[in-house]
């Protein structure tokens, strides 16, 4: 579903992603962990082409997004991205936030998009907020709406960049629950997270990054129970 080959990314002189090779199968849930500054965000942002790689290829569903040109908009419609700071559209209601993209991209009529939005809001238990503006919502509610907004496009892949890091602790659970349900439903997911318990329970595979490199990757159980690389051991001893 996603194949990353020899990916390199620089910010100025700084080599942020060093020859990354990675594959994700359909329906797989991959957790991306590592110390802050190790390049996790940059990596998943490259997959959505929010960062432009300096070299290498990224195939999403067979298409090389690095060479997509104008086609990138179409490819992005199949990739959902959830940000740490939600990035809901503050001038639009919850319902409008969710229906905007499906309608403008021509995926759905206004009526279909609203039906889809209402269905999503019901599963998130947020139907009563449909006419509210983002400013009146709690962080946990905002993030669930942001996830609904992405899901309304019926993407094949969902990317999460520390979706719970900006939340008050008591709201982390409600967002993780939504992500867990999504994983169970068979969605292909890449999750950058500091929630090790979540990664262990939900991820099929865990990738540990440090200094722009993939240091170790393994099944969740293996990587957490039996880390091999000293940097992984050191990192896990700090966070577990």
């Amino acid at each position: 579903m996603i194949r990353i080959e020899n990916l390199n990314k620089y910010f100025g002189d700084k080599h942020v992603l060093k020859n990354i090779n990675l594959q994700i199968k359909e329906g797989e849930v991959l957790a991306l962990i590592g110390p802050s500054g190790s390049g996790k965000s940059t990596l998943i942002r490259c997959i959505d082409y929010l960062e432009e790689p300096d070299s290498g290829d990224i195939y999403v569903d067979g298409q090389n997004i690095v060479k997509a040109g104008k086609e990138i908009d179409k490819i992005r419609q199949n990739i959902g991205m959830v940000f740490q700071h939600f990035n809901l559209f503050p001038h639009k209601t919850v319902l409008e936030n969710i229906t905007l993209a499906p309608v403008l991209t021509g995926r759905m009529t206004q009526k279909e998009a609203e039906e889809k939005a209402i269905e999503l809001l019901k599963t998130m238990d947020l139907l009563d907020k449909k006419d509210a503006y983002p400013a009146s919502l709690s962080g946990g509610q905002k993030q669930r709406i942001a996830i609904a907004r992405s899901l309304a496009m019926e993407p094949k892949i969902m990317l999460f960049d520390e979706a719970t890091s900006a939340l008050d602790p008591e709201m982390v659970g409600e967002v993780l629950k939504v992500m867990q349900d999504l994983a169970k439903s068979g969605m292909t997911m890449i999750v950058v997270t500091h929630e090790m318990a979540f990664a262990k329970e939900v991820a099929d595979r865990v990738v540990f990054m440090a200094d722009g490199e993939i240091v170790e990757e393994n099944t969740a159980v293996e990587l957490f129970e039996n880390p091999k690389h000293p940097r992984t051991i050191e990192f896990l001893s700090k966070v577990l």
């Binding site: 908009d73 992005r76 991205m81 990035n87 559209f89 905007l100």
Partner: peptide, 23 residues
Amino acid sequence: VDKGQWEASRSLGLSSSQTMRHV
């Protein structure tokens, strides 16, 4: 306007002119 607004809109598959106009 926060750059996250631009990114959120583009990541949903909206074009740059749609993003400009609607977001």
